[in-house]
Simulated scan of single mutants.
Amino acid sequence: MAFVEPFDEMDTTHRIVTRQSSDVKDWDETGQLTVENRVVDSVLGYGDAIHLSVNAGKFDRTETKLERVDESRKIFAGSKPEYRAVLPRDGDIVRSALAVTPGNTDEWSNRLFTLNEFAIISEDDRLYRSVPHHGHIREVDASGRISHRSNSNGFGEFVPSRNE
Score class of each variant (00 low, 15 high):
106 D>T: 10
59 F>C: 03
135 G>V: 04
100 V>F: 02
145 R>P: 01
80 K>V: 01
149 R>E: 15
50 I>F: 00
135 G>H: 10
77 A>T: 09
15 R>W: 06
53 S>P: 08
162 R>C: 03
3 F>A: 05
83 Y>W: 09
139 E>H: 14
18 T>P: 00
22 S>D: 13
77 A>R: 10
164 E>A: 12
46 Y>S: 07
100 V>Y: 04
46 Y>I: 03
67 E>F: 11
66 L>V: 01
11 D>A: 15
34 T>I: 01
66 L>S: 05
145 R>I: 12
21 S>N: 14
87 L>Q: 05
92 D>Q: 14
97 A>T: 00
109 S>T: 12
57 G>H: 06
134 H>F: 10
102 P>Y: 02
119 A>D: 01
127 L>K: 07
31 G>M: 07
122 S>I: 00
150 S>E: 13
122 S>A: 10
133 H>I: 03
163 N>K: 12
56 A>S: 12
77 A>V: 04
110 N>C: 04
127 L>I: 04
57 G>M: 02
87 L>A: 03
16 I>D: 05
45 G>E: 11
64 T>P: 00
114 T>S: 14
93 I>S: 06
38 R>Q: 11
61 R>C: 05
108 W>C: 05
48 D>A: 08
75 I>Q: 04
80 K>M: 10
108 W>R: 13
79 S>W: 06
74 K>R: 15
126 R>I: 08
65 K>H: 13
99 A>T: 00
79 S>P: 03
120 I>C: 02
75 I>W: 01
13 T>A: 09
93 I>A: 11
74 K>F: 08
70 D>A: 12
92 D>E: 15
5 E>H: 13
20 Q>P: 01
44 L>G: 07
66 L>F: 05
20 Q>R: 14
8 D>T: 02
102 P>F: 01
161 S>I: 09
140 V>L: 11
124 D>M: 04
22 S>Y: 08
160 P>E: 08
96 S>E: 14
55 N>Q: 15
73 R>W: 01
5 E>Q: 15
72 S>E: 15
117 E>D: 13
164 E>Q: 10
61 R>D: 11
160 P>K: 12
